[in-house]
């Protein structure tokens, strides 16, 4: 089944490939969410190519680790990672958001192999991950559940309902990664509805907190691997990230939350990403 886990250097190159896929697919679709896809790319890459126990040829394997991108609008990063990992052919990436595609505007577990939960309404994927972790405990399974949430998403009350429950049931088989990119749809999170102090809030909810630079692949890998060893508590990895990471004109710009690049913008973005990995 699994390919051997990638080295950090290989992961960096894979992340660059996935960033290119994201840019191309959103361009072709003509709509979609590049900013939050790019901020989560290093995390999702490390999970699929090193940390998670999955088998692309057997996406429904009951003992697989579960992954949920609760900030479901960023599904281009998920779709690209699944294609690169071999769940389906890369040609599907060009069909994003088109009629009859397996790649819906927000991820759909009935249509896309490897998608463990239907998402798109913010705050719900996190609770679904909690449910999967509870089942794992009940049935004495050793799979791990990984959930990525957004910092805007953290404003949903339901996130805090799940946070309380995760601590109550001591779900050490659940790890949440917070993509702390500082932006939401309308503007900076600090201007729309401040959420700080983030690590203190999660500590107060009795979660184990690890803070990292979400674009430093060494830190990403080591945090994910550490999270699996923490006992009797769920872990949240607070990943400081940059929305639009890797594309200069998209970085930290609210407008790139949900907008497709033009051909010229795509070409520039692809060139910049290649340059960063020396290609």
């Amino acid at each position: 089944m699994p390919q051997s886990p990638m080295s950090v250097e290989e992961l960096k190159r894979m992340a660059a490939t996935i960033r290119c896929d994201i840019i191309e697919m959103v361009h072709i679709a003509g709509s979609g969410h590049p900013g939050g896809s790019l901020s989560a790319t290093d995390i999702v890459t490390a999970l699929y190519f090193r940390v998670m126990r999955v088998d692309p040829k057997n996406p429904d394997w009951p003992d697989r680790d579960r992954f949920i991108l609760s900030k479901g609008h960023a599904c281009p990063v998920w779709y690209a990672a699944l294609a690169e990992r071999g769940y389906y052919d890369k040609s599907h990436l060009g069909t994003l958001r088109q009629l009859n595609s397996i790649l819906q505007g927000h991820a759909d577990m009935l249509k896309t192999p490897g998608v463990d939960m239907t998402v798109g309404s913010l705050g719900q994927g996190f609770s679904a991950g909690l449910g999967m972790a509870l089942s794992g405990k009940l049935r004495k399974k050793d799979y791990h559940v990984w959930v990525v949430i957004g910092d805007g998403e953290m404003q949903e009350g339901a996130v805090w309902e799940a946070a309380m429950a995760g601590a109550k049931w001591k779900l050490d088989n659940l790890t949440t990664i917070l993509d702390l990119n500082g932006l939401q749809n309308d503007d900076f999170v600090d201007d729309i509805m401040p959420i700080h102090p983030v690590p203190d809030k999660w500590r107060a909810f009795n979660w184990h907190v690890i803070e990292i630079d979400g674009h430093n692949m060494d830190e990403v890998v080591s945090a994910l691997e550490t999270a699996k060893t923490i006992k009797d508590k769920p872990t949240i990895i607070v990943a400081h990230t940059v929305k639009g990471k890797g594309v200069s004109f998209m970085e930290n710009v609210a407008a790139w939350h949900g907008q497709a690049p033009t051909v010229e913008q795509m070409d520039q973005a692809l060139a910049e990403i290649c340059q960063q990995v020396g290609r």
């Binding site: 709509s31 958001r97 819906q104 505007g105 927000h106 998402v119 798109g120 309404s121």
Partner: peptide
């Protein structure tokens, strides 16, 4: 005041 009524949000799909 509710936008995205009915199936008018085509590309976003079912959740929207």
């Amino acid at each position: 005041a509710a936008s995205h009524g009915g199936i008018t949000p085509g590309p976003d799909g079912v959740t929207h």
